[in-house]
Amino acid sequence: MNEMTKKQLQATACRVRMGVIEGTYHAKSGHPGGSLSICDTLTYLYFAKMHVDPKQPEMADRDRLVLSKGHCAPALYSVLAERGFFSKEELKSLRHIGALLQGHPCIHIPGVDMSSGSLGQGISAACGMALAAKTDNSFYKVYTILGDGEIEEGQVWEAAMFAAHYQLDSLVAIVDNNGLQIDGKITDVCSPEPIPEKFEAFGWHVIPMDAHDFDSIEAAFAEAETIVGKPVAIIQTSVKGKGVSFMENQVGWHGKAPNETEYQQAMAELTTQLKELEG
């Protein structure tokens, strides 16, 4: 990836992170930690990869994305707003009564391809979309993002079995391996590891990825496109809370909104990062 493109993507991802902080701060609730860990991946997908059109959010041949870890809706909403699906002002009323942006993704929001939030379900819907593409000989891709804690849900493995059986090679599942879930480290709670080996055993092609390095992200999605006859699992190593110093790798920031002071500090840090990237 050339430096210019990379800097642009990094700057966009930084703005997406600011949207996450903006949204959760105004909502006074929500999930900043896991939202911040997927911002670079979402930015790459919506700004450099996916065939989508904010003017036609339901375009039949668009690429789809199902946020299976639906509690990280602030990141999805922020990237969709940044891409022009709706006004960034909407982020300020996230989770408010009467607002467009619900606490978890809702299919009626422009750009949101599937309602999600009850963990383990999004990947099944993504399988259905990929199956429809296959039966219709359509070429759209279906991306779904799962949490590493989320894969403790049994339904994920029902879907994993199904996707391999039907050779859903338009399906790319991204597992956000930030190592933390609500009750603590995933390895302490009820370990889903080893993650790559599990997907391999279920018949998937597995690609490791550094979730905060656009060269690694680009390479992973490029490799995914070459795979025929198998679904692809990208296991991304990420940092929960990435981009905001005091949130990084802190389990306490899984489902807690920043207060006024924390909001100011987070925005100041992200503004500094953005200035450096744009400077």
Partner: peptide, 22 residues
Amino acid sequence: FDCGIAEANMMGVAAGLATAGK
């Protein structure tokens, strides 16, 4: 499409198919 003995996934797959016009 036989989904095997996996009803939870079957319902989700059906949902995904419906979003694509099936």
